[in-house]
């Protein structure tokens, strides 16, 4: 069976993991893919661990169940590693991306024996450098695309520019910063992926 490429996002309420999943669905849709982006809902409030999902495929997606064996896991908040089994069900040939200034080697021992690929992105550093503020979404989004290879770099970049231009029509000053954050992430991961 094929449900396309499956991604699971871990974050905290209010941090933007859900938004990241929706933005990824957006970008993938615009490059001609079939997409699903959905959060797992509960009554959680700001700060509580939350999960969101993506399916990206070249075929229409019909399955409406949760994702149990993702191809990729993205962890928006490193502190979740203590409380959430983020690599649960993650395919051995898949990958996990953790937002952290640490190296993948430093992170791996916290992943309950996961044997697949581990990447880290220092989203804070990149975000502050590019935007002057900490918004982990753009770096995490770029990392997910770079690691998964579900979209071509150029198509992704150009779609994200369109998307930001629309989203930030009233705050054009943040468009370039976000674009820079995407590019810096891409560049940082270029050699390791």
């Amino acid at each position: 069976m094929s449900n396309g490429f499956e991604i699971r996002w871990h974050g905290r309420g209010g941090q933007g993991a859900k938004t990241a999943a929706l933005l990824l669905a957006d970008a993938a849709f615009k490059t001609g893919k079939y997409v699903q982006g959905f959060p797992e809902y509960g009554p959680e409030r700001m700060g509580a661990p939350i999960t969101a999902y993506n399916r990206i495929s070249d075929q229409p997606i019909r399955v409406h169940s949760n994702i149990y064996t993702p191809d990729l896991v993205a962890v928006v908040d490193e502190t979740l590693l203590h409380s959430v089994d983020v690599t649960d069900g993650l395919k051995e040939d898949g990958a996990v991306i953790v937002n952290s200034p640490k190296s993948p080697e430093e992170i791996r021992p916290m992943l309950k024996g996961y044997k697949g690929k581990v990447y880290t992105v220092d989203a804070r550093k990149i975000s502050v450098e590019a935007l002057g503020k900490y918004f982990p979404n753009s770096p995490m989004l770029a990392a997910a695309v770079a690691v998964s290879g579900i979209m071509e770099h150029d198509a992704f970049i150009s779609e994200m520019r369109n998307s930001y231009q629309h989203k930030f029509a009233k705050k054009p000053e943040v468009i370039d910063g976000n674009m820079l954050a995407l590019q810096l992430t891409y560049d940082a991961l270029k050699d390791v992926v």
């Binding site: 079939y34 997409v35 699903q36 982006g37 959905f38 959060p39 809902y41 409406h64």
Partner: peptide
């Protein structure tokens, strides 16, 4: 329609 499963899921 099904709550959250389709109401909150972005699809084509």
């Amino acid at each position: 329609q099904d709550g959250f499963i389709t109401s909150h899921a972005v699809e084509n």
